[in-house]
Design a protein around this nucleic acid. Sequence first.
RNA 1: GGGCGUUUAGCUCAGUUGGUAGAGCGCCUCCCUUACAAGGAGGAUGUCGGGAGUUCGAGCCUCUCAACGCCCACCA
Length: 870
Amino acid sequence: MSQNETLTTLETVYDARKTEKDIYKFWEDNEYFKADNTTSKETYSIVIPPPNVTGVLHMGHALDGTLQDILIRYNRMLSKEVLWMPGCDHAGIATQNVIEKNLAKDGLTRHDLGREKFLEKTWDWANTHKNRILEQFKLLGASFDLSRKRFTLDKGCSDAVKKVFVDLYNKGLIYKGSYIVNWCPRCQSAISDIETNYETEPGHLWEISYPLKDEMGAIVIATTRPETMFGDVAIAVNPTDYKYKDLVGKYCVMPLTGRTIPIIADEYVDKSFGTGALKITPAHDPNDFEVGIRHNLPQIKVIDEKGCMIANEYVPPQIQGLTREEAREKTVKMLEEHQVLVRVTEHVHNVGKCQRCNTTIEPLLSRQWFVKMKPLAEPAIEAVKSGKIKFIPERWEKNYLMWMENIRDWCISRQLWWGHQIPAYYHNKTGEMVVALENPDPNNYTQDTDVLDTWFSSGLWPFETMGWPDTNSADFKKFYPTNTLVTGFDIIFFWVARMITMGLEFTKKPPFSTVYIHGLIRDEHGQKMSKSKGNTIDPVDLIEKYGCDALRFTLTYLCTYGGQDIKISDEKFEFGRNFANKIWNASRYVLMNISKSKDELELDSAKFTIADKWILNELNDTVKLVNENLENYRIGEVASVLYDFFRAKYCDRYIELSKIEKNEAVLVYVLDNFLRLLHPIMPHITEAIWQKMPISKETSAILKAKYPVYKSEFEFKTDAEKMETVFETIKSLRNIRAEFNIPLGATIDIIIDNNEELYKQIIPYLNRLAKVNSVKFEKNNNAKKSAVCTVLDTKITVPLEDLIDINQEIARQNKKIEKLMPELKSIEGRLGNDKFVSSAPKEVVEKTKTRKAELEAEINLIKETIAKLS
RNA sequence: GGGCGUUUAGCUCAGUUGGUAGAGCGCCUCCCUUACAAGGAGGAUGUCGGGAGUUCGAGCCUCUCAACGCCCACCA
């Protein structure tokens, strides 16, 4: 059985899933995705944004993965040695949450199990799930090198993390200190600033009277959190506030507890807000914390890690042990009873929430590990400013720089168990701390119980996956730094910024040269997709329903250069499916019509028809556009250019023309080139068809084939351009047929008054595509009862005898003039303007003049026609 | 409060250095023409958010106003 028989005997409806499974297996079996770190070829590498080990494939991955795969496949076809590095992230909080939730079903907490048992359980779970998401990436056609698959908690990554931590510590860039952190009482851990989201919530503003000590009078403060008052250490007012001028330096007595605190002046206080007086609670408010440091005030903690009131001397017994919410209610009640509650007003304010679990954050004084970011940020800013790292689209650069220039220290310790345990060891007796790669003496030293923020290890991803800290590793030498990083804008701060800082600090090189930022996937109403809203679309379902290539093509097509968010709905993917089906059927047709052997299918320019020259020229233009757009990350444009070329040019025109006069070599040549061009976007179908192409090939798979290259000097350009006239003529004649309801079976006769030479060449096309029976060449013909069309300077007359209603035809012609007039008017206006003629570029003036002549000729032709008709 | 983005055909959106607008879907008419009805042919549809400015010329550049969206900051 010959190759093309297998394709041509198949059904007319393309079975995407069957083809895609077979093709992916073919690639895998041949190990085509495996990167070779020993070649001397130019390299191109991408590291995958590691999906969470707990995760399942979602539309964001589908888009992100598709774009990466397109770049990888394109560069592979440019004959580079490519590496797409796959792997997963251990996702500290997210994963631990899942495990704890499972435990909770049995009424257990992680503490019931203990650290060791809990980690064992988590590892089990991670191990059983860690293949799932990368397996799902395979459904996307991902051509990553799974033999190199990494995990952020594997040995190599752990070693890298430890080395980075110890080095940064030794450089003084990591420190441990007591600061206010965002504490999640549910996760029982500190979280970083960017893991905190703020939500607007209705609340109250309570005004409380603090009596002055040893004299009459009181100072009224305003607060949204009365329960924290037990931790107050001062009352602050603005130094320029005349209302309180005399009170600064005096003391007041706290209601309910009777503790004495000073009244201080600090610029931070806003005179116009509330009463202009503010209570200072350094242990439970980040701003108060700063004020406290400035004025050397004590820090009194009254809320614990669970969000409950502490039982200490500062908190009244009735309040001790209550939750934050209960304590607030009770405190207010007590203040009322003591008649020190002056006023309560409604007040909308922003409340910090844990990004992971949406629990209200408690700002808490606590001892945590931090990375000093300023010194690390400087080179990272420089790398972007100098253009060593480029953002696409550019506007994200500004965003990145703004964040980096205002960077704050990064709280990296998390009170979790799942993650990289901090390599700090404390002497069991003396408490002395040692930061080292290994425990200096396990009998006498105990490791810090905290783990590192997940983003600490993902920040090292581009080099820890390449064998670092072994800088002699073959992968590191060959594939680092990587070329492009593809991701969504939502993790620029979390991830991209940290990779840049860490990469520069530890490898002295930017980890990638281009950051390609795409939009987020949204539902058809522009809403973010989320499980709780129930508006998610599962890419795996889409692949089953429409095929992977259809999914990829549709997503790519919807991808704009500006990185706008992408709204999708299930039905939108019919677009890609229909295109795949079209490709399948067109290819079937072409392959069915090849009778020549491989050797006879060489291009022979002596045999080119005008149509051949036209399609080859169109192909060449397409090659140019596709390459340019890929180089410039205008990937959506690539999809659109290829779609237009294939449907409008190749199928609707060239294949139709080939039914009249066939050049098998060209038919096959163009299809071959088109498949190569499209392969990065729709890898499976292009591979499947290419495998069946009866042509000589330089390699065994299209994914290894050469990408088409633009020919800057194309010899048949002028001939090719003539075809536009032909298409215009066919369209005009078809329009006449439609307007006058000429039955499909009926032919027409035409009289052409100009361009005889060209039209003689294309008579067969007119015969077939416009059902033209006879063609006469005749200047100044006087055929009555005719419909007429003009194509530039050529008038084509279609005698219609009884079929025609002259008034209808006159109306039709007038409509044409109407359509052309506005353009002519505007052109006349321009050319009549001396300033335009003198200041516009010569080419533009020339072009405008030419266009004017064309328009005038055409309009005159139509006017003449009307005159003759009536 | 600071920054960014969006506003173009009924819907979803393109529009790369300024030379008067395109696609997909939808709509109307016709066609199962031996690759494809997941298709083909023909057609209709836009004061490019409002206003002002620069320019010979603005969807594109500048300013301004409006609406919607996002990010950062976090005023008790």
